[in-house]
Design a protein around this nucleic acid. Sequence first.
DNA 1: AATTAGCACTTGGATGTTTTGAGTGCTAAA
DNA 2: TTTAGCACTCAAAACATCCAAGTGCTAATT
Lengths: 357, 357
Amino acid sequence: MGKDILSSDGLSNRKKQILRSIIETHISSGEPIGSKYLVSSGDIPFSSATIRNEMAELEEMGYLEHIHTSSGRVPTNLGYRFYVDSLMENYKLTASEIVTLNNMLKNKIGELNTILQSASKLVASLTNYPTIAVQTDTESKSVDQFSHMLLDANSFLLVMRVSDGNVKTKHIRTDFEINDDILHQLIALLNKFVAGINPEQITLPIMMQMEKSLGSAGRLVDICIKAVYEVTVSNEDTNVRFEGVGKLLQYPEFSNVDKMREVLNMIEDKDSILDIMKDGEEDKVNVVIGKNDEKIVDDSAFIYKKVVVGGKVVGAIGVFGPSRMDYSKVVTTVDYLSEKISNAFKLQLNSPSEDEK
Amino acid sequence: MGKDILSSDGLSNRKKQILRSIIETHISSGEPIGSKYLVSSGDIPFSSATIRNEMAELEEMGYLEHIHTSSGRVPTNLGYRFYVDSLMENYKLTASEIVTLNNMLKNKIGELNTILQSASKLVASLTNYPTIAVQTDTESKSVDQFSHMLLDANSFLLVMRVSDGNVKTKHIRTDFEINDDILHQLIALLNKFVAGINPEQITLPIMMQMEKSLGSAGRLVDICIKAVYEVTVSNEDTNVRFEGVGKLLQYPEFSNVDKMREVLNMIEDKDSILDIMKDGEEDKVNVVIGKNDEKIVDDSAFIYKKVVVGGKVVGAIGVFGPSRMDYSKVVTTVDYLSEKISNAFKLQLNSPSEDEK
DNA sequence: AATTAGCACTTGGATGTTTTGAGTGCTAAA
DNA sequence: TTTAGCACTCAAAACATCCAAGTGCTAATT
């Protein structure tokens, strides 16, 4: 009955079935899997000898490995990769899970960093792995809208809504007296000429025109433009936060000091995290396994999806855990949430006057 | 020669000498200390038998302990406490250490959280223990001024200048159409009735009056007041950051999974950290050891000093490590740095700066 | 040709035993 | 008061044994 027929990816169906069964069992147990166990589990309708033969071949192909002659098989990184790419079924979020997610997110519409962090806590509570919330600075930002708050006769607050979803303020002092009227004019001008455009495109003629219309308060233009530069160019907002690292210790593969040291070192090096994420694709959940891509600690996996607002990557949320991770659940959850976040900000952004694009 | 004369704190000088020698040796080696070792080290001019007798008494007094009959002695928490309070000598920062500290701090004058973090990194590099940077919220806040930014016909940004110097924004959506006029009225009302007062003093009559003057848009009042509450009551600016937790793994007492789990759990629970620090005194370096004060993991110690700016505690920096810590160096470093930071901000407050978050 | 039963063989881990050495407490001598 | 000396203790290291789970291979079966 078996029929060792190759399907498109070079594996007979029986091999796939066996590989999958091994991986899923191993994911939940963490133990090496032997042929007899597979038989007794009822998953595979063949004898242990047959399974052993298949296993041997799967091993030769690089999907499984063997710690020593008399131990069961364990998936290799390549095995996990194959599983994630071709074998895994989509996890369905339960209704109650969705309700939980939505409720917790609902009250959090606001600043991007707040929302990223609370999303990452959410993922943590649902998946029992440590989570990561990354906020990145986009390369090219613009200020999309200006507003102000007059503080006293010599100072005011310039309020800027930045294209990455953040709102920044800058305290500006003047050596001459200002009032609400002047500021209104100033803000109107800024909204007209500066809002939404790349700061590099602010030309001298534009600035001069603005200064002229402001008359004696023309000097403010210069100061404000400087503020725009600071806000759009600086990348002090880049931020990598891990939550719940302690959870790793419940997994035997991390229950030893050396592995923990490796992990803590990796985690504390924000740059390495950003470096890993740089390579990821934008509109899908990325799964980085073990040290195929050797930036990551062996035996571990890193799953993340970038959060895109207004066509730009503003951050990411994700999960870090053992390579025998519950991929399907994690992938689904991360996907759902990052999508939700992007949407929440789409609403917020769609509104204002000028649409670029 | 020995003369077992009691000094003021109930210990003969010889006992002090022995206790101190044991503690300092143990701090650097991590091993239990035996009588013979002390003799061979040359520190104590008595025979091993004499030392053994003294040790037995020190043990009876609670300063030392014994894992089993045939092991050397180890300091108890009480022993460390005594050492820190009475025995320890002040560490002298070397000239090059001071230069390093000053240089690194010099370029960082700016935002409080930035400076706290870079200070904590500094301590980490000098002491080889993980460090903590805490930023705390001041207890009672109010919103001192309101402003707005209209996003579209159904949403706007409420901009609030909070009394602690931060500016917060809240994205507010409405299910009816709004415009700049209505918002101006709203903001004017808020500035008149709500600005500068403690949110607990906002009474229902005031709110009703505001709602009435706004007519059909009255509902906005409620929403905005809620935002005010969130901003003034929440302490989301409170922030506890650990840096270099991985360093703990180099100390054998933390090189096991259970201890590590305890530590990670403690570290991830910001509230417990804040709770510990609440009890600390303001103008000195606080040393919390082991589980005398049982909020902290056994075998560990927590050293911190609060940073005070303008009479208010705005945060703290500190170090977490094994109870056999290099107290004198750590205490000195933490003291020096926190002092520097307070000073840096004193300067900044006096001279006008144009930065505000 | 594909599958399976059977069996010899491997090996990590669990368990038990022995040895070693650092360190103690106590007694009696200095 | 101090110290030399000695019997005693115990954790940790080293070594030995046993066991269960699992494999690879061969020969029998379908």
